[in-house]
Amino acid sequence: MKIQVNARNRTHLFETEAGAGEKILHAGLMRGIALPYECASGTCGTCKARLVSGDISDAWPDAPGRKYLKAAGEFLMCQCSATTDVVAEVPAFVQLMETGSCVPLASKGCIVATQMLTHDVMTLDIESAEAIDFDAGQFMLVGVSEVEGMRGWSMVNFDRHARLLRFLVRRKPGGVLSDWLFADGSRTGAGVDLYGPLGHATFYPSLGKDLLCIAGGSGIAGMMSILARAEQDNYFERHDGNVFFGVRSMKDVYFLDEFTRLRAQCGNRLAVTVALSDEDPPDGLDDEYPLIRFERGFVHEVAARQMQQKLANVMAYLAGPPPAVDASIRMLLLSRVTADNIRYDKFS
């Protein structure tokens, strides 16, 4: 189908695969057109457009992101595919992606390993049929044929031309895909659909700023990718890094050995703090993990306490449950960190 997107500054033309249900957002991004999006999975409302002519099919009419639609004819480009030629209006300036951006692609993949990290979090290793270039901090959409729709998960690893992608998945009560993944019996060998990379909260070593990562729960995934990239570039020889990882209690914590390894490898300019919201850190933990700091409190409060006088030259990366991200944003803005030094992808 022929798609015409009328943007504030110009018109973009591209095609979607007829009958394949290819989403308008995906098709445009794959052709290097920087259409607006954040979650790309139906919740944030950023990719809204208005249908001028043609017919579309909405894969998720109850998507939470539809609450941001106001005028008649508005739709989410991440959920809708064209059933005829379509003309749509996007009330934003839409350019082509900058040279060197990681242009997303669709690929098939296969689950090659899973490992339980806690009672409700696992790592999920997927081998992609196509090599994928992504930036540290980006995410992929992952879907399985047994469950409708795709979910956005951040990569934990950082490699160029990656065939192996590692994700963190937390079991959500009532989450259909997580129920499928966490069900008894291994999912190793299952085929998956991949689309990506996506996401604007990226890190490049040319950033030249101190790094501040504030993550709640499995939001730590993308931070691990950022830390991997920074480690590969010896970034912490030149800049400070502060990582805050918030969980409820010790039974929810993971990656302590990896943090210890990173601290030993990257030196004293990297600091890692685990914030426990529901309990005091147990005695003896400091001896067991001398390179990691443990504190009681919500992750944004712990970060606020420790980062006093250290926020002048930071780039802050945020991820996790929306209330944790919102609280961190508020804390940073009130501490006079400007909005262009705060990066996150909105999932609500």
Binding site: T46, D326, I329, L333, T338, A339, D340, I342, K346
Partner: peptide
């Protein structure tokens, strides 16, 4: 500051700041 995408403005002038 707009809470959605952190667009910001100088309250005295309405001029765009940051993002």
């Amino acid at each position: 500051t707009c809470h959605q995408h952190l667009w910001q403005w100088d309250i005295r002038t309405g001029e765009a700041m940051g993002l």
